[in-house]
Amino acid sequence: MSNNKGLTVGQKRAIWAWLFLVIPIVYFIIVRFYPTFDAFSMSFTDWNIIGERNYIGFDNYVTLFNDPVFWVVLGNTFEYLLFGIPISLLLSFTIAYYLDQIKFGHGLLRACYFVPFLTTAVAMAWVWRWFYQPVPIGIFNLALGELGILQMDFLRSTTQALPAVLMPAIWAGLGFQIIIFLAGIRSIPDSYYEAAKIDGAGDRQILWEITLPQLRATITFIVITSSIGFLRIFDQVYNMTQEGEGGPLNATRPLVIHIYKSAFEDFEMGMAAAQTVVLFTILMVITLLQLKVMKKDG
């Protein structure tokens, strides 16, 4: 105490705090904030890795919005979201809802549903890619053949390819959502249910009037996290389509593939940066929108 030369306890602790924070602050500035700034500034240049960065104003954005392929890509990106969210939400809630009512083998079943979450997306993308092949090698079509049902084109169809690529993404995320739903359902106080039963409410009524409203926060959480996931889909598309192009005919090409190709195959760093800014904006708007909805309801 004597060697503190008049520093108060509060000042001393503030020094400790900054001491603890100095490395992290430097880290976050170099690895998060500076790159963010750099991405924005790069998006206003025509930089192509080799050569100078020339500032060209909004040219990249103008080119982007005049490019019909970019609109297809944006459309696909939202299609992943619009198919992905309802399907995965419905499946995971239904499974969690019924799983909650089961005691026998509950842990085992839960584990089975959860396991896909632990797999590597790239690895499983190749498994699904194999499944989707036509006869004589694709498991799905072989099975359809055994059942005497018409063959499906899956990845070789402009309409089926996107859902086919989306499936493994939904499949892998389902376990996580189920676990979160189960925890949410378990955290609803029993007294709510008992009161409802005394009032003579049926199962369906309880589901709609108690369970679902009580799960609002859980649902919002799942919707936000999985929205962000679907909008950023990459691993599956890159590994399930020919040459990672997001084909056939751009039918499965999402924004992140487009960014990757622009940046690391065409070296159009400025253009790619502009696309990342678009992605950033979309994610930001969706997150804020959903948070607002949650706040209003909460």
């Binding site: 690895v31 904030f33 991405a39 790069m42 990342t276 992605l279 950033f280 930001m284």
Partner: peptide
């Protein structure tokens, strides 16, 4: 400091990979 660090959650990795690569 807290808000600044929290705000990094909003930045998608895809936006950072190009500058990271340059860095």
């Amino acid at each position: 400091v807290f808000i600044a660090i929290l705000s990094t959650l909003m930045i998608p990795t895809e936006m950072l990979v190009i500058p990271w690569y340059v860095l």
